[in-house]
Amino acid sequence: MKLTKIALATAMTVAAGAASAETFFYDNSVSVLYGESYEVGNSDKTVVTFEHFSANSWGDIFIFGDRLINNENEVPNTTGDDGSETYIEVAPRFKVSDFDAGFVKNVYIATTWEMSENNDDFLVGLGTDFNIPGFQNLSFNAYQRLNDDGDNNYQTTTVWGVPFAIAGQNFMFDGFWDWATATDDKAATSNFTYQLKWDAAQALGTDNKVYVGIEHAVWNNKFAIEHTSGFDTKENVVSALVKVHF
């Protein structure tokens, strides 16, 4: 099953690259997070993240990679001597309908390939974008998950971005909510994460967005490991954030 999912995900990614006849918009960023209240693994972590998003004539694609660095050496695990690890997602969506003027903006075939040092999971389903006043973006995706570790299940993902200004300064409130259903051997899991950040570009005299702020992540049954561990899998972590777009 794992080889089948990897083959599907590879084909999905290659198809997305080959199909990019015209790019309407793209954005890249690198961010650094620092938090001290993680429950899973060491409590003190730095996370370095690369993100890419582009909108194309065929749809869009979001790619990110996290490098989670444990700042203590107290909780080793199977991903490394100190528990540090890398996690990557590749998520192309293929447009099937376009309703630019309506409440529903676009409809997609939505796919995601989740890659960790232990598992490769593949998600496929339907996605939508919405036209909502005040929102830079609002999307909702519903997937079936094909899981390496355990039974398959279902997931919904909501993503939003709301820019706003206070006293001539630009801010952004954005984030996502992943919710996955329970299986016979694992409880449901939820990850609600948002960032609240100030764009310091004007103060720094640069054209590129440079965000400073916080990320707040609320996990319930993190990594769906509730039934296989003796430690708390609920997290409520506020991290300092610096994010540079280019």
Rank of each mutant, 00 (worst) to 15 (best):
K2Y: 10
L8M: 13
A11Y: 12
A16C: 10
G17A: 09
G17K: 07
A18L: 15
A19G: 11
S20H: 05
F24Y: 14
F25W: 11
Y26Q: 12
N28V: 00
N28K: 03
V30E: 00
S31H: 01
V32T: 08
Y34W: 10
E39C: 04
V40T: 09
D44P: 00
T49S: 11
F50E: 04
E51P: 00
F53M: 06
F53Q: 03
A55N: 05
A55C: 00
W58P: 02
D60Y: 09
I63V: 15
I63E: 03
I63W: 02
F64C: 05
G65M: 08
G65V: 12
R67F: 11
I69F: 03
N71K: 03
N71Y: 03
T78P: 00
T78G: 06
T79H: 01
G80S: 09
D82Y: 07
D82L: 05
S84N: 07
Y87L: 11
I88S: 05
E89K: 10
E89L: 04
V90L: 13
A91Y: 03
A91Q: 14
P92G: 09
S97F: 14
F99T: 13
G102D: 14
N106H: 14
I109N: 06
I109F: 12
I109K: 02
T112A: 13
T112E: 10
W113Y: 08
W113M: 08
M115S: 11
M115N: 10
E117W: 04
N118G: 02
D121M: 08
D121A: 10
D121F: 08
D121N: 15
D121R: 07
L123K: 15
V124K: 05
G127M: 13
D129S: 08
G134M: 02
G134Q: 04
Q136D: 15
Q136K: 15
N137Y: 11
L138E: 01
S139V: 03
F140C: 05
F140S: 04
L146M: 12
N147T: 11
D148H: 08
Q155N: 09
T157R: 10
T158Y: 02
V162M: 09
F164E: 06
A165V: 12
Q169C: 00
N170G: 04
N170H: 10
F171N: 04
G175F: 08
G175P: 01
F176T: 02
F176W: 15
W177I: 10
W177A: 01
W179E: 10
A182K: 15
T183I: 02
D185P: 00
D185K: 12
A187Q: 14
A187S: 15
A188L: 05
N191L: 15
T193E: 11
T193M: 07
Y194K: 02
Y194G: 00
Y194F: 15
Y194I: 04
Y194H: 11
Q195P: 00
Q195F: 05
L196Q: 04
L196R: 06
W198P: 00
A201C: 05
A201L: 06
A203L: 15
T206L: 13
T206S: 08
N208G: 02
K209H: 12
V210R: 06
N221D: 15
N221V: 13
T228Y: 07
T233S: 08
T233G: 05
K234Y: 10
V237G: 01
V238G: 02
S239F: 09
L241D: 06
L241A: 08
V244T: 07
H245I: 01
H245T: 13
